[in-house]
Design a protein around this nucleic acid. Structure first.
Lengths: 260, 260
DNA sequence: TGCTAAATCTCGAAC
DNA sequence: GTTCGAGGTTTAGCA
């Protein structure tokens, strides 16, 4: 048994060698980075021509292709995933054709010379979280309760209540109990009904007035009426804003410290 | 004198070697592709965390940085141009910090191991034209003269006249001579004065009324007055529209032919 | 599947 | 430097 080789390098291949390498890698679903001198034609939703120059082309295992120049964040030409490829020699040039069926597009890269081909067999299962997770939103509220409302003071979080765990509970400026359910995305009926169950349990155990608040970036359609019926409030709370708030202590230490 | 080496490869460097290579390349304003096992933290307009995995990082000479996973067209993390970089070893990891001053952002890439570093010293002066080139615009006008005006009939193109070549000339519906100068981008004073010279030559050789038309997507500011003075007209002509006109015959032959 | 709206939008040009 | 507008925008959420 051979161990996986994450990086294979083909230096200064002839165009024929390059064709073989590229075809083989594509058939084995490996990623490619091809560096060389090329021109590019694109036609589809729009059309474009790029004259000869040195650049590199990335072909990913999901069938996306990108042509990158030495400048700019964005590729000069590309196809999103699901492209199909054809490689051939055509008049002393290596031609990579990428067809995108859904967009009815064709991208053609003509290599006059190939400096290097990288074949990457890399595995990436790393979890990616954007903005803030629901947990981070919770942290943001705990660290800065005023983002819910002035005078709110958290008492506990992840508190066990009959149907599950309450995200945050505390008291407001009038000493009323407040139960908060946090949602990262648009809050639907399910979220509201879950909070309603918590409230039912708590209201049954106490004679004090208990407020319920759904904190989410948005409210699903038709849920507004449900809130009125169940006597639950809605507070707009965006994960992005939470991230910024959490970051403020870091921002002074991180951003202001580091950015000249 | 040494000739430029477009591609340098550093395989399986130690983290210390990697730091040296990266710092050196950055200081010499060369492009970098770094393949390895890394995690990524981002904080700025939004924030994100990416756990350990195999991926590659591109750092371009304009200070843009991209972190690409094996899938997806778009990078998982990035900075647009104008980032500043710091490279260091931190707790058995290679840390690349990218600061973006304008956006007040920090991107941190922690490499646990580096498989390969590509240093690219590539030059790309190739012209990029989206939609249509000036030549295509000329073709579009020749194929469909009515996009200039109803009744216009081209007679010749690229005709030699004293200062250079006239893009297109022909006659209008009133049998007057028409000289057309085509520009792909906003027409400035230079373009108008060039056309004026052509007109001067032609008007000197003929007693007929000669019209001069600048065909371009836009007119630079202040040029309007110059047009009045020189008795030159302006016709809005967009390369995009020209491409669409030209593409009508190509779309069926190219796209339908190639895309399965 | 098609639309609507936001995006770490990017990017270039005008002010 | 900042703002404005277009883009093969892309991308995610909903009808």
């Amino acid at each position: 048994m051979t161990s996986r080789k994450p990086v294979s390098i083909v230096e200064e291949p002839s165009l024929e060698e390059a064709v073989r390498t590229i075809e083989q890698s594509l058939s084995m679903n490996k990623m490619l980075i091809i560096v060389g001198e090329c021109s590019v034609d694109y036609m589809g939703r729009a059309s474009s021509k790029l004259k000869l120059g040195e650049r590199f082309v990335i072909i990913k295992e999901d069938g996306s292709i990108l042509v990158h120049r030495p400048k700019n964040y964005s590729p000069v030409n590309w196809h999103p995933a699901e492209s199909h490829f054809e490689v051939q020699i055509l008049k002393d040039k290596l031609l990579i054709k990428a067809f995108h069926r859904r967009f009815r597009e064709v991208l053609k890269v003509f290599f006059r010379s190939v400096y290097l081909i990288l074949v990457l067999d890399i595995v990436d299962k790393g979890e990616f979280t954007l903005y803030a997770s629901e947990e981070d939103m919770q942290k943001a509220v705990l660290a800065h309760p005023e983002i819910i409302e002035k005078g709110f003071v958290p008492i506990s979080y992840e508190k066990k209540v009959e149907p599950g765990f309450i995200d945050i509970y505390g008291i407001d400026s009038s000493n009323r109990l407040v139960v908060i359910e946090i949602k990262k995305k648009t809050a639907g009926r399910a979220a509201v009904l879950q909070l309603a169950k918590y409230l039912e349990t708590i209201r049954g155990n106490s004679s004090r007035k208990v407020r319920g608040i759904i904190a989410a970036p948005a409210l699903a359609k038709g849920v507004q009426q449900l809130l009125l019926t169940l006597d639950i409030e809605y507070k707009s709370l965006h994960p992005k804003k939470c991230a910024e708030i959490l970051g403020q202590k870091n921002k002074t230490t991180l951003l202001d410290k580091y950015i000249p």
